[in-house]
Amino acid sequence: MATLRELSRMPEVLVPGHRMCAGCGAPIVVRQVLRAAHAPVVVANATGCLEVSTTIYPFTSWQSPWIHTAFESAAASLSGVEAAYRSLKRQGKISQDIKFVAFGGDGGTYDIGLQSLSGALERGHKMVYVCYDNGAYMNTGIQRSSATPKGAETTTSPVGKVQPGKRGSRKDLTKIVAAHNIPYAAQVSPAHWNDLYAKAEKAFAADGPAFLNAIAPCPRGWRYDSSDTIELCRLAVDTCFWPLYEVENGKIRVTYKPKEKKPLVEFLKRQGRFNHLLRPGNEGLLEELQQEVDRQWEDLLAQSES
């Protein structure tokens, strides 16, 4: 296991001067993931907060080659880059070993980019796709996505007289990705940096597509104080809202079991987007959300190899 002291000696690919909001979870994820590449990387980015905020012309925060094409096309465009690499390497026009990584938010990954991601996974391109999941379309101003948790308030799932925030459960993307039978898929949290680093290393070393789903709190969208970002990541894991696990060659393994599983409300009550759930009259919905987390956690434990 690498120490932070060792990790701090590695080159940074994402440098300061980017214009992500103060306390944003996404650049923390990016910094932690890229430290595990151990080779030059080419980065692809789906349209979204990370993309726009790190490359405001004529500035770029990327030290590595970087490409953005459109919202839904990060995996497809990186497929083309990776195919070009294989072709040119086979022809002897490139000699270096290069790793390929895509970053997309939940909008660009769970929703509009799911088809192109699925295609790239099925074709077996050797790339790591990282979703930084902040649970809504934050870049356009906090609209619900299929990653938005049930009950969360967003600008397109507002709390009103007849609607208590977002209806329906969020999509389980990590499982959907794992169902492509790719070599490696995992769920990570930047609070657990060592777990994340180990998984990122496995992802970059995989002989085929790999996927990391990273929780990435958004101070504006989740409505909390920006200093709480890592604490919320921790609570998401400790309440089992965001379990840390991996699917390696089809085998599921929970990589972190909270010593004491905290009630979901511990995670929810720190965020303005769930304020309404704590008001009288919404106890039933809160209970329903707790039961859903419990069921999913139990299912995961049952599937997990110890």
């Binding site: 440098v15 300061p16 001067g17 980017h18 214009r19 790190t54 490359t55 405001i56 012309y57 004529p58 500035f59 770029t60 925060s61 990327w62 030290q63 590595s64």
Partner: peptide, 15 residues
């Protein structure tokens, strides 16, 4: 093509 050939030049931008 809108490319930026100066990697990491955002350091000059003071957030």
């Amino acid at each position: 093509g809108g490319i930026i050939p100066e990697p990491g030049n955002s350091r000059a931008y003071r957030t």
